[in-house]
């Protein structure tokens, strides 16, 4: 199933979850219990000893509680995610901080992950929290997690499990892995400047001070320089020297192919932004085509996480020069 951008469960519905607990591999425990109780009943009924019947009744009560009690525990167990990250990468573990009303085993199903025990225990407090790890296989946006909670309390005789849907406190954007970038044309060198040896700088680093121009950000006023120059001076930041490009991503319908293409797209965007090239990312999301500049890997990962696949005729990742107007607006993922 390909990741679907912006998955939401309708209000009040339990998508993918079942309210009815079910036993896990019950055949042997049930068969053993029925055999023991049947043999016991036969002996007690024909042995004429009241104590045999009394002890057998206690065994029956214990077995019944041990076999059926966990269903009630699982039914009443409540799990919540206390804290979760906002971004992740496909194939990399994501840790959720969870709390439960009682000790249960939690095994994430969508996204999948290993089982962990959550809830109060011998060495933990009543409100103790535990980490549950997700291993998202592919990109996507997750607002909830489908998990199986299981318990065998109080006697550990038979495990019961129930699927539940747990809402995440914040949406989890799982971006694709960093794939190999497309082969890009060499960037024309910026021949401005007289120094023969130039050290590269990142976009956004302070470059110098200059006089204030109307419209400059007042937070960039450089007071020492202002005092020195007796006029308002502002810091000048390093700007991109390369020409902006548009990375257009159209993913195929096949989920595996879409994932590979998304990885290459991310790799391409990261390579471009690392080189200082402003990148405008053109993707198709659930609400339609979205074209906006991205500042780095995180923003690009989020955009690719929301990208839907198989909705267009053309597939692939292309890099084309971007119109200046596209880069003048808000940059996604840029830091202030």
């Amino acid at each position: 199933m390909s990741p679907t951008a912006g998955r939401h469960a309708p209000a009040g519905a339990v998508r993918g979850g079942t309210r009815v607990p079910r036993p896990v591999r019950p055949f042997i425990p049930l068969l053993s219990s029925v055999t023991v109780l049947g043999a016991w009943a036969l002996v007690a009924h024909n042995g004429g000893a009241g104590w045999v019947q009394a002890v057998g009744d206690i065994v029956a009560g214990t077995l019944l509680v041990g076999l059926v009690g966990p269903a009630a525990v699982v039914w009443r167990a409540r799990l919540r995610v206390v804290d979760s990250p906002t971004d992740a990468t496909a194939g990399m573990p994501v840790e959720l901080l969870c709390a439960a009303t009682t000790r249960v085993g939690v095994r994430p199903l969508e996204p999948s992950g290993p089982e962990a025990f959550v809830g109060p225990g011998r060495h933990t407090a009543a409100d103790a929290r535990a980490t549950v790890t997700l291993l998202p296989g592919g990109r996507g946006v997750h607002h909830e997690v489908v998990a199986a909670v299981s318990s065998a309390a109080p006697f550990g005789l038979l495990w019961w499990t129930r699927r539940i849907v747990v809402r995440l406190p914040v949406a989890l954007h799982v971006g694709p892995r960093l794939g190999a970038p497309l082969s890009l044309p060499p960037r024309p060198d910026d021949v401005g400047g007289s120094s023969t040896r130039r050290a590269t700088t990142d976009v956004g680093e302070p470059r110098g001070v200059r006089p204030y121009h109307p419209g400059d950000n007042r937070r960039r006023v450089h007071w020492p320089a202002t005092a020195h120059a007796a006029e308002l001076m502002v810091r000048e930041m390093e700007g991109p020297t390369a020409e902006p490009v548009t990375v257009t991503v159209r993913l195929p319908g096949d989920p595996a192919a879409a994932e590979r293409l998304a990885e290459r797209a991310l790799g391409t965007v990261v390579a471009l932004t690392d080189a200082g090239t402003p990148v405008v990312l053109d993707t198709v999301e659930a609400g339609g085509v979205r074209v906006a500049q991205v500042a780095g890997r995180r923003a690009a990962g989020r955009r690719l996480a929301r990208t839907v696949d198989g909705h267009t005729r053309s597939e692939g990742v292309t890099v084309t020069p971007a119109p200046r107007a596209r880069t003048a607006g808000r940059v996604e993922g840029a830091t202030r």
Partner: peptide, 12 residues
Amino acid sequence: LVAMWGSASEGG
């Protein structure tokens, strides 16, 4: 039996 559950649940 309770200890069995405690061991199976890693400290329950």
